[in-house]
Design a protein around this nucleic acid. Structure first.
Length: 423
RNA sequence: GGAGAGAUGGCAGAGUGGUCGAUUGCGGCGGUCUUGAAAACCGUUGACUGUUAAAGGUCCGGGGGUUCGAAUCCCUCUCUCUCCGCCA
């Protein structure tokens, strides 16, 4: 959520930045400012009336105590007018504030100055490409066929138990999941992140805090009876640890990592590109989250990007880094890097990580603040990234490392899998 | 699922109609003392809004009501805890 005071002071810049995100309702900006003007004037009137009423109430108490009952009664009569005014003004104020809030939550975050204009994924900027794309033999298989050939993943069984997009991992396929999770967590801890293990369901307040609610309800599974949402990413519970928290300046940056399954309805996404592990309703992911000082958050973003890249390098996977264009960015993000690995058998790039700086967009909703050098409270910046999401890593590992002898496990992972080959 | 208790400042915990944004303790910060630290002692210490700064206003789980005046009384919702039952 954007701060009203910022919108007021930087109206033109806000409009210009929203255009980069192809925001369709720029008129909301003026409406928000107008409502805030109304809010302020109503608030001032209410405050002044309350001040008079408070003074009178105090005076009545004084008169009662000193036995001047008649004077007190006279004053009581006068207060009835204020009382009505206060009630009416309060109702007005609540209505204005509610309307203001409703419009405010419709405004997406402002993109960073480095974000390219653009509407579609094709307009994302390739920041860098790293690692050689492997040349596979003629008879190379896509991962879903490899998964069947080596009995690693049973998609049909998942359909029986739950439905499409809920695969069953078996044998070395299952062990590979655990190995990757442990490997990613260990690497995150080496980089200074402390591990947390968090609930997989969250309440409405948490969903609002990180920006999934109110408008992205359709993407989350909802347990209606208890009004809880299955998390689409660990970002939600991990970041919400710090909801309504005022951190000390010296606590920054806060660094947390955690593994969770992630649940996504993925309503409306069907077709060839969802085959196999490419798009699932349930998958495992290790997430890294940082809460940073506003002056440092872009340094932190680069550092997080390098951490993710380091993982891909150690796994020997060719990858590229994209800076998302305005149209492809998430609602809450100010700058997002996507990391994609090259899937040699599918001959396409697969997104395996997304690293974002949300600046104060989330922290304003979360009321996540820190005490700055002047001792005043100030909104912190929040960042997060996948490090990494498993399914597409598994897909590229299987595809890119296939040989006549079987599938070669990267050296970095062998201590975790305790096998070198899937054969 | 049944029964009961509770929700107050970072934490603990007072406060049953006026001078209460709130006693006190712990914690935090500053100081005295000390070579330094601890202890002891002294002082200080909520958030939001508003203003150049003040003043003022709001907040004792949320919402509503009674009253000139509510942390305190009434209604309602939510959440938490304890015991019993069930269960990993």
């Amino acid at each position: 959520m954007l701060q009203v005071s910022y919108i007021r002071d930087n109206r033109e810049q806000v409009l210009e930045r929203l255009a980069v995100k192809n925001f369709k309702q720029p008129e909301l900006v003026s409406e928000v400012i107008e409502l805030d003007d109304k809010r302020r004037s109503t608030q001032t009137t209410l405050d002044n009336t309350s001040a008079e009423a408070n003074a009178a109430a105090k005076q009545i108490g004084e008169l009662m105590r000193t036995g001047k009952k008649e004077d007190a009664e006279a004053l009581k009569v006068k207060t009835s007018v204020w009382k009505e005014d206060i009630k009416r003004l309060n109702e007005q104020l609540n209505a204005i504030e509610e309307e203001l809030q409703q419009k405010l939550v419709l405004l997406p975050n402002l993109p960073h100055s480095s974000v390219p204009k653009g509407l579609t994924p094709e307009e994302n900027e390739v920041v860098l490409e790293n690692g050689a794309k492997p040349a596979l033999p003629e008879n190379a298989l896509p991962h879903w066929e490899l998964a069947a050939k080596y009995n690693l993943i049973d998609f049909e069984l998942g359909v029986k138990i739950t439905g499409a997009g809920f695969p069953v991992y078996k044998n070395k396929g299952a062990k590979l999941q655990r190995a990757l999770i442990n490997y990613f967590i260990d690497e995150a801890e080496k980089a200074g992140y402390s591990e947390v293990s968090v609930p997989l369901m969250v309440n409405e307040a948490s969903g609002f805090g990180t920006g999934q609610l109110p408008d992205k309800e359709g993407q989350m599974y909802f347990v209606g009876e208890d009004k809880l949402y299955l998390i689409p990413t660990a970002e939600v519970p991990v970041t919400n640890i710090y909801r309504d928290v005022i951190l000390k300046g010296e606590d920054l940056p806060v660094k947390n990592c955690g593994h969770t399954p992630c649940f996504r309805r993925e309503a409306g996404s069907y077709g060839a590109h969802v085959r196999g592990l490419n798009r699932l309703h349930q998958f495992d992911k290790v997430e890294i989250v940082q809460i940073a000082h506003p002056d440092k958050s872009y340094e932190v973003l680069e550092q997080m990007s390098l951490h993710v890249q380091g993982l891909l390098q150690k796994l020997g996977l060719p990858y590229r880094v994209l800076r998302l264009c305005g149209g492809d960015m998430g609602f809450a993000s100010a700058l997002t890097y996507d990391m994609e690995t090259w899937s040699a058998a599918q001959q396409r790039w697969l997104e395996v990580s997304s690293v974002s700086n949300f600046e104060t967009f989330q922290s304003n909703r979360l009321k996540l603040r820190f005490r700055n050098a002047e001792g005043k409270t100030q909104l912190a910046h929040t960042l997060n990234g996948s490090a990494l999401a498993l399914p597409r890593i598994v897909a590229t590992l299987l595809e890119n490392n296939q040989t006549d002898k079987g599938i070669k496990i990267p050296d970095a992972l062998v201590p975790y899998t305790r096998f070198e080959w899937i054969d």
